[in-house]
Design a binder for these strands. Structure first.
Lengths: 142, 142
DNA sequence: ATACAATATGCGAGTAACTTGCAAGAAATA
DNA sequence: TATTTCTTGCAAGTTACTCGCATATTGTAT
């Protein structure tokens, strides 16, 4: 479990060819800290209190950081996006169909499945990212 | 590739414990015909022309049929949902990050991965459905 | 340091996808 | 055929997200 120092995060932004701003750093370091996919709402809520960041700025930074490959964007059919830091490690989710709880599981590779998919595909030679979610009721909601 | 007759579809609705209405049947048979995940917009557009169905009715029926387990709901991070008939066969998607093309690949099981995930999970004993999408550029967009 | 061009920000207004309230109409059951 | 319950259309509402524009800040060249 890598911990990211402020300098690490600054470097990540810089190496992505992006400008360094306080707000951009706040967004990135918040996501580095929580280590779970979180909703934009939670992010906006926390950062507005702490640093007085406008929601438009949060959205724009999430977009920029995502484009730059520093974030993952996830969708669990809840009508609002989740974001998390792009760690490079494979990561998949278990999602409760009732209470929206999300459990992240790391370290399970699906390279074999991806290879099989690409072999069958007519329109794609390779892919760059993927997402996989399992849906069901969590222990609390059974 | 199973083809669904009107009677099949009627039975599916009936067995799900739902009422049979013309509009509900239209929605279901449209999805049975296209065999690919399609957007609500495409559905609304086609059905409005053909049968004069209001978009609220389409949304409500998609919801009802999905709740009943007859449809799958997919999200490709495009800001609008896709739906397809629930066939029972596993089915995963390749999605173009540029042009929103979706290619569906059937017949690849990921049961092993699911087992591994559940073994690692602390919050879930079992899951009922899943989704998996690979993202990249399709041949046209490379 | 300073000036300049490019990018980021806040604010308010706008948009797209989807939902809801309500009155009227159609389906299932007796 | 009557009654109950579900479905529909319409218009208005909500939510998540985006945009325009004026101002502020960043990185770069001087």
């Amino acid at each position: 479990m890598a911990l990211y120092s402020k300098e690490d995060l600054l470097m990540m932004i810089k190496e992505a060819g992006l400008r360094i701003t306080d707000h951009r750093l706040s967004v990135l370091s918040f996501l580095a800290k929580v280590k779970q996919p979180i909703t934009v709402y939670e992010l906006v809520d926390s950062l507005r209190k702490k640093d007085n960041i406008d929601q438009a700025t949060v959205y724009r930074n999430l977009d920029t950081l995502h484009e730059a490959g520093l974030l993952r964007r996830l969708d669990f059919n809840h009508g609002h996006a989740h974001y998390e830091l792009e760690t490079g490690r494979p990561s998949h989710q278990l999602v409760c169909s009732n209470c929206e709880t999300v459990e992240k599981i790391e370290g399970i590779s699906i390279d074999d499945t991806i290879k099989k998919m690409l072999k069958k595909s007519k329109k794609f030679k390779h892919t760059t990212t993927h997402s996989m979610e399992l849906y069901g009721l969590c222990r609390n909601c059974i």
